[in-house]
Nucleic acid binder design. Structure first.
Length: 95
DNA sequence: CTATTGACCAGGG
DNA sequence: GCCCTGGCCAATA
């Protein structure tokens, strides 16, 4: 599953469920999230590119900051909506 | 090896 | 339309 996350191109985002599906676990969205949380290679796994199916972030328990994920994604060219969510329509992976 | 938890997702009230 | 509940997978203790 780590491979799948690693394959996410720069400037794109994928939902936990999407990653789980590509990883071969359509129902393992939860496991995916936890696997990232305790990822063996923190630097090799762009957890910030993985968000909810809605494009929403985890909410402060990730990476060590609230706006960190947003800042990183914006830095990569990901567009954020006024809602505070990622624009899945334009930056969503395989979309 | 078994039990509990955790950054999810979908359905029902 | 929003809030609560249930079920899956993976990892850690």
């Amino acid at each position: 599953m780590y491979e799948v996350v690693r394959q996410i191109p720069r400037g794109c985002v994928a939902s936990y469920g999407q990653v789980a599906f590509l990883a071969g676990n359509p129902r393992g969205a939860r496991g995916v999230g936890f696997a990232m949380h305790r990822s063996p290679e923190p630097g090799g796994i762009p957890c910030h590119r993985v968000v909810f199916k809605d494009g929403g972030l985890c909410g402060g328990l990730a990476f060590g900051g609230e706006g960190i994920q947003r800042a990183l994604l914006e830095e990569e060219g990901v567009v954020f909506l006024p809602d505070g969510r990622v624009d899945m329509a334009r930056c969503g992976w395989l979309k």
